[in-house]
Design a protein around this nucleic acid. Structure first.
Length: 417
RNA sequence: GGAGGGGUGGCCGAGCGGUCAAUGGCAGCUGACUGUAAAUCAGCCGGUUUACACCUACGAAGGUUCGAAUCCUUCCCCCUCCA
């Protein structure tokens, strides 16, 4: 492990970020002798990346931090095909407009993790639509297709698993790995990019790209994948009540993002600190060793560190402070999610179930009613006993706000306007 | 192209003329216990509604019937075998 010569390989291995790597020794040598180029592709299937992508982003960040040049490849072209890896069903086809809009929305995330520019180790953003959109079918078949063995393609997990489970696989999707392979070669030609990284489900696609590069351009290309992430209790990472844990602040507030990490299971704290923060490993070891309730301190550090990288240190500190006031002091924090309700309505009194639904603490009025019936709703920390119990201006605190709580962790403020 | 099987709520998966907003499992929410953890136990888990009730939903559209997720027709999609 620690016998690696290059800082990158030492770091990512020590932090448990590597699942598989092709010819690690040779790659290590190359990395030790000068700046190299690596890329990771991100498909534009949603308008935000989520925590499932975070490990990949951290790989690019370490890549740059240890003296190399990262490329964030936006899958403007491949998203039109849909990666069949790891799924039993064909992805819903997105329109070109959706893809373009998603890409624009995703791009901002990288600015927080990577330094872009024209320097030797500055990050570059590319879009594979730039070369995939204009490909011609016959030349593609002759130049690229002849290097692919269908026999081999059928053994790839993404294909084999579909076939074994009698799930459909369209010819469209069957082509995905060819285009991803082509990307690798194209980036080699354009930027001398010699490494493709990705999640472990991408191993097959990446290795095919490396092979293609060798055949088409005589290039020596490498594959490096990160482990598949699950929480210790086995759940897929990144799911909450509200859905995925998004990286864009417009999809998930900084406070909620911070809370997600704060609520990490005990058993995951050390692992997550290594994977998603840049704290020195000795510090991680110390935090991880904390027992019992003390580990909560480690969770706060984890939350603030991860949030700091994603949303900035100021926003992270603010989220931490909001949480501290809310949970440790039981006071009202200023930047809890806030809804504004017309003064006149509050004057008259708003039924509690309506207010909870409007504040976003319940998805529907029915759910708000159930929440109240189940005893999980509180106004200013006093349990709501009746669904229709009116909440009015008289509930307003000194600072002009009413605090609503759904369960112990979800809070919102109501302000009369 | 021929023959057969199938498309059910976020997912898996029962149901096969009424008692079906649809068994069960997973996921999720709330409560208890705790440390804003896990595990465990309990309740909830389409929408509007105090409620009665109504609306939406079992691939799509029609039809039969007092009544259809369940039967018929057409269409779309998937799987298997044959060509």
């Amino acid at each position: 492990m620690s016998t690696f010569k290059s800082e990158f390989m030492r770091t990512v291995h020590a932090r448990g970020m590597v699942h598989q790597c092709s010819d690690a020794e040779r790659l290590d040598e190359l990395l030790a002798t000068g700046p190299r180029v690596a890329y990771i592709g991100f498909d534009c299937t949603a308008d935000s990346l989520h925590v499932g992508h975070l490990l990949q982003i951290m790989l690019l960040r370490w890549w740059q931090k240890t003296g190399h040049k990262p490329i964030a490849l936006m899958g403007g072209g491949t998203t039109k095909i849909g990666d069949p890896s790891g799924r039993d069903e064909t992805r819903q086809l997105l329109t070109d407009e959706q893809i373009v809009a998603n890409m624009a929305s995703i791009k901002g995330t990288f600015a927080n993790y990577l330094t872009f520019g024209d320097g030797a180790t500055d990050a570059v953003m590319a879009n594979n639509a730039d070369w995939l959109d204009t490909l011609l079918y016959i030349p593609l078949l002759r130049d690229v297709g002849r290097h692919f063995s269908v026999n081999r393609m059928l053994t790839m997990d993404s294909v084999r698993l579909r076939l074994e489970r009698d799930q459909p696989l369209t010819f469209l999707e069957f082509n995905y790995m060819i285009l991803q392979s082509y990307d690798f070669v194209e980036l080699w030609k354009r930027h001398l990019c010699m490494v493709q990284m990705g999640g472990s489900d991408q191993w097959g696609n990446i290795v095919m790209g490396a092979d293609l590069g060798r055949r088409m351009a005589g290039a020596e290309l490498f594959a490096l994948t990160s482990p598949l992430l699950a929480t210790s209790s086995g759940a897929k990472m990144g799911k909450t009540a509200a859905g995925a844990v998004w990286l864009n602040g417009s999809r998930l507030s900084t406070y909620d993002f911070w809370q997600y990490w704060r609520n990490t299971e005990d058993a995951d704290v050390g692992r997550f600190l290594r994977l998603f923060t840049e704290l020195p490993l000795e510090e991680v070891a110390r935090l991880e060793a904390l027992g019992g309730a003390e580990i909560n301190e480690a969770k706060k550090i984890l939350a603030t560190e991860v949030t700091g990288l994603c949303h900035g240190k100021v926003a992270a500190a603010q989220a931490a402070e909001t949480a501290r006031q809310t949970f440790e002091q039981g006071t009202l924090a200023a930047d809890l999610p806030t809804v504004e309700i017309a003064r006149a309505r509050l004057q008259a009194g708003v039924p509690a179930f309506e207010l909870f639904a409007e504040a976003g603490l319940a998805d529907s009025k029915g759910e708000a009613r159930r929440l109240i019936k189940g005893g999980g709703a509180r106004v200013n920390d006093a349990a709501v006993t009746s669904e229709t119990q009116p909440v009015s201006l008289t509930d307003t605190g000194a600072d002009g706000r009413i605090k609503l709580s759904a369960g112990k962790k979800r809070h919102a403020l109501v302000r009369a306007v």
